[in-house]
Protein backbone atom coordinates (compact mmCIF):
# COMPACT_ATOMS: atom_id res chain seq x y z
CA UNK A 1 0.00 0.00 0.00
CA UNK A 2 2.88 2.37 0.82
CA UNK A 3 4.41 1.59 -2.54
CA UNK A 4 1.12 2.43 -4.20
CA UNK A 5 0.84 5.84 -2.53
CA UNK A 6 4.50 6.55 -3.27
CA UNK A 7 3.94 5.81 -6.96
CA UNK A 8 1.41 8.65 -7.14
CA UNK A 9 3.76 11.28 -5.70
CA UNK A 10 5.18 11.92 -9.14
CA UNK A 11 2.93 11.39 -12.15
CA UNK A 12 5.04 9.69 -14.79
CA UNK A 13 4.58 8.34 -18.27
CA UNK A 14 3.43 5.02 -16.80
CA UNK A 15 0.28 6.54 -15.34
CA UNK A 16 -0.66 7.95 -18.72
CA UNK A 17 0.07 4.59 -20.34
CA UNK A 18 -2.36 2.89 -17.96
CA UNK A 19 -4.98 5.62 -18.33
CA UNK A 20 -5.03 5.34 -22.10
CA UNK A 21 -4.93 1.53 -21.96
CA UNK A 22 -8.06 1.59 -19.78
CA UNK A 23 -9.74 4.18 -22.00
CA UNK A 24 -8.92 2.21 -25.16
CA UNK A 25 -10.30 -1.03 -23.77
CA UNK A 26 -13.48 0.74 -22.64
CA UNK A 27 -13.85 1.81 -26.28
CA UNK A 28 -13.36 -1.76 -27.50
CA UNK A 29 -15.86 -2.94 -24.89
CA UNK A 30 -18.38 -0.38 -26.15
CA UNK A 31 -18.04 -1.59 -29.73
CA UNK A 32 -18.68 -5.16 -28.60
CA UNK A 33 -21.37 -4.32 -26.03
CA UNK A 34 -23.78 -2.09 -27.93
CA UNK A 35 -25.99 -2.69 -30.92
CA UNK A 36 -26.87 0.92 -31.69
CA UNK A 37 -24.54 2.05 -34.48
CA UNK A 38 -24.28 5.61 -33.18
CA UNK A 39 -23.03 4.45 -29.79
CA UNK A 40 -20.56 2.13 -31.54
CA UNK A 41 -19.33 5.16 -33.47
CA UNK A 42 -18.92 7.09 -30.21
CA UNK A 43 -16.86 4.23 -28.78
CA UNK A 44 -14.53 4.52 -31.77
CA UNK A 45 -14.11 8.21 -30.89
CA UNK A 46 -13.23 7.14 -27.35
CA UNK A 47 -10.46 4.88 -28.69
CA UNK A 48 -9.09 7.71 -30.86
CA UNK A 49 -8.97 9.97 -27.80
CA UNK A 50 -7.13 7.36 -25.75
CA UNK A 51 -4.39 7.39 -28.37
CA UNK A 52 -4.41 11.20 -28.46
CA UNK A 53 -3.80 11.44 -24.70
CA UNK A 54 -0.91 8.98 -24.99
CA UNK A 55 0.69 10.93 -27.87
CA UNK A 56 0.43 14.18 -25.90
CA UNK A 57 1.94 12.48 -22.83
CA UNK A 58 4.88 11.10 -24.82
CA UNK A 59 5.43 14.49 -26.41
CA UNK A 60 5.54 16.11 -22.96
CA UNK A 61 7.87 13.55 -21.40
CA UNK A 62 10.29 13.57 -24.34
CA UNK A 63 10.12 17.34 -24.85
CA UNK A 64 9.28 16.96 -28.55
CA UNK A 65 6.37 18.90 -30.04
CA UNK A 66 5.98 16.60 -33.06
CA UNK A 67 3.69 14.37 -30.99
CA UNK A 68 1.27 17.26 -30.53
CA UNK A 69 1.23 17.83 -34.29
CA UNK A 70 0.26 14.16 -34.68
CA UNK A 71 -2.61 14.67 -32.23
CA UNK A 72 -3.69 17.68 -34.28
CA UNK A 73 -3.76 15.58 -37.45
CA UNK A 74 -5.70 12.81 -35.69
CA UNK A 75 -8.30 15.41 -34.68
CA UNK A 76 -8.50 16.68 -38.28
CA UNK A 77 -9.01 13.18 -39.66
CA UNK A 78 -11.53 12.35 -36.90
CA UNK A 79 -13.59 15.44 -37.77
CA UNK A 80 -13.70 14.43 -41.45
CA UNK A 81 -14.47 10.84 -40.50
CA UNK A 82 -17.37 11.87 -38.24
CA UNK A 83 -18.89 14.08 -40.95
CA UNK A 84 -18.86 11.33 -43.57
CA UNK A 85 -19.69 8.56 -41.10
CA UNK A 86 -22.75 10.28 -39.69
CA UNK A 87 -23.98 11.03 -43.22
CA UNK A 88 -23.69 7.32 -44.03
CA UNK A 89 -25.50 6.44 -40.79
CA UNK A 90 -28.36 8.81 -41.63
CA UNK A 91 -28.63 7.20 -45.08
CA UNK A 92 -28.70 3.72 -43.51
CA UNK A 93 -31.41 4.83 -41.10
CA UNK A 94 -33.50 6.18 -43.98
CA UNK A 95 -33.29 2.82 -45.70
CA UNK A 96 -33.78 0.35 -42.87
CA UNK A 97 -35.70 2.54 -40.34
CA UNK A 98 -33.72 1.26 -37.38
CA UNK A 99 -30.40 1.85 -35.63
CA UNK A 100 -29.82 -1.85 -35.05
CA UNK A 101 -26.48 -3.01 -36.42
CA UNK A 102 -27.95 -6.49 -36.73
CA UNK A 103 -30.23 -5.39 -39.56
CA UNK A 104 -27.14 -4.92 -41.72
CA UNK A 105 -26.20 -8.53 -42.27
CA UNK A 106 -26.43 -8.69 -46.06
CA UNK A 107 -22.70 -9.23 -46.39
CA UNK A 108 -22.92 -12.23 -44.06
CA UNK A 109 -23.45 -15.54 -45.83
Amino acid sequence: MEELTASFNQIGIQHYLFLSAVLFSIGVMGVLYRRNFIVIFMSVELMLNAVNVLLAAFSRFNGDQSGQVFVFFIMVVAAAEVAVGLAILVMIYRNIRSTDINALRNLKW
Partner: peptide
Protein backbone atom coordinates in the same frame (compact mmCIF):
# COMPACT_ATOMS: atom_id res chain seq x y z
CA UNK B 1 -18.22 -8.22 -24.40
CA UNK B 2 -17.43 -7.05 -20.86
CA UNK B 3 -15.18 -10.07 -20.30
CA UNK B 4 -13.21 -9.60 -23.51
CA UNK B 5 -12.86 -5.86 -22.90
CA UNK B 6 -11.47 -6.46 -19.42
CA UNK B 7 -9.13 -9.16 -20.71
CA UNK B 8 -7.80 -6.72 -23.31
CA UNK B 9 -7.27 -4.16 -20.54
CA UNK B 10 -5.34 -6.69 -18.43
CA UNK B 11 -3.17 -7.68 -21.39
CA UNK B 12 -2.43 -4.04 -22.31
CA UNK B 13 -1.64 -3.14 -18.69
Amino acid sequence: AVLSGSLLMIILA
